[in-house]
């Protein structure tokens, strides 16, 4: 491609810099280098992830009621989980919750990132405004949305009345058919900042001459967006999907604040279930078992994806 010609031979990353390297490190094999690079990370990881995970797996085989001493129970917790209507319900709710929330938050964030990237300087202040929602804690966002949805003096009902749509007013969080949707909207509001940021960063790392070439060929900004920005911002989109999807599985505070899981369990997600069972009801074994199941489910979904993307090392 023509682009290769524009490479600057004297850039800060020219191969010449390699001469600065200490001689001893030159001889390292890939394996040695990899372990050298990974060891510090693995130390942190071992203490704060591997050890608690092993502990969680161990706990999941015990029946623990609050502070009482644990009783070994084999697969009892797992068997109970799969016959627990509340757990199965939470799986269903989670599927809707995680997929819709991730889809909309990433879509909105990506779209905004593409628009903003056409004029990065003038949209900076707007990006900061949208990102601000990401910086507010879930509990506080919950409170702000509570004011919007409340049945008596809620902002949403107030606006609907003001524009003559009185018949659309609702107790948004009390009606089982609107509660989950309302919580998802609030959650999407909190989550758009991340896709906006990662997609924007991704677009900014698209080589500039690609655009120049396209504009010289007479392309309009619409087609530039479609043919260059959208496909080349995929790394940012992937990261956003990954982070937002897995974060949505853990969401608790916002749901707790807005609906407390209600009305009648219609907004209880797996994250809510896990938190309630282990932190509120303190059935640590049961909560642990539900965490293990979630871990396995995510593992099953993610292994093929990760394998596909890791291929052979370059």
């Amino acid at each position: 491609m023509a682009l290769a010609e524009t490479a600057s031979p004297d850039g800060p990353i020219g191969p010449s810099t390699a001469r600065l390297r200490p001689a001893a490190l030159r001889q390292l094999s890939d394996t040695q280098a990899a372990w050298l690079l990974l060891t510090p990370l693995l130390l942190f990881f071992g203490v704060s992830v591997i050890y608690p995970v092993i502990e969680t797996i161990r706990l999941s085989f015990f029946e623990i009621r609050g502070l009482a001493p644990p009783k070994f129970d084999g697969f009892g917790n797992y068997i109970r989980l799969f016959s627990d209507a509340n757990f199965l319900n939470s799986m269903k709710v989670t599927l809707v919750w995680a997929l819709t929330a991730t889809f909309f938050s990433v879509l909105i964030g990506w779209g905004l990132a593409m628009l903003c990237s056409l004029n990065p300087q003038k949209t900076l202040v707007f990006r900061v405004m949208i990102f601000a929602a990401y910086g507010v804690s879930e509990a506080v966002s919950g409170f702000m949305w509570l004011g919007i949805y409340r049945p008596d003096y809620g902002l949403l009902n107030g606006i609907l009345e003001a524009i003559g749509l009185t018949n659309l007013t609702q107790p948004w969080l009390g009606n089982p058919s609107t509660a989950l949707g309302s919580v998802i909207v609030a959650y999407v509001w909190t989550q758009v900042g991340l896709p906006l940021m990662t997609c924007f960063a991704s677009i900014q790392s698209i080589p500039k001459n690609l655009f120049e070439a396209a504009y010289i060929d007479g392309a309009k900004s619409g087609s530039v967006m479609r043919h260059i920005i959208a496909p080349l911002s995929m790394p940012g989109v992937r990261v956003a999907i990954f982070i937002n999807l897995l974060n949505s599985l853990k969401a608790f505070d916002l749901i707790f604040m807005l609906t407390g899981g209600g009305p009648v369990r219609s907004t209880e997600t797996v994250g809510f279930f896990m938190y309630r069972e282990s932190m509120l009801n303190f059935k640590l074994g049961y909560g642990a078992a539900s965490t293990v199941i979630l871990l396995i489910a995510v593992l099953v979904v993610s292994i093929p994806l990760i394998l596909k993307r890791t291929g052979d090392a370059k």
Binding site: V47, L249, G287, I306
Partner: peptide
């Protein structure tokens, strides 16, 4: 690959799981 899968999947781990062992 095994290490990568382990590390990446740890993201599902909720904070409340980590608390008591730690």
């Amino acid at each position: 690959r095994l290490l990568l899968i382990l590390i990446i999947n740890a993201f599902v781990l909720p904070n409340q799981v980590v608390i008591i062992p730690l």
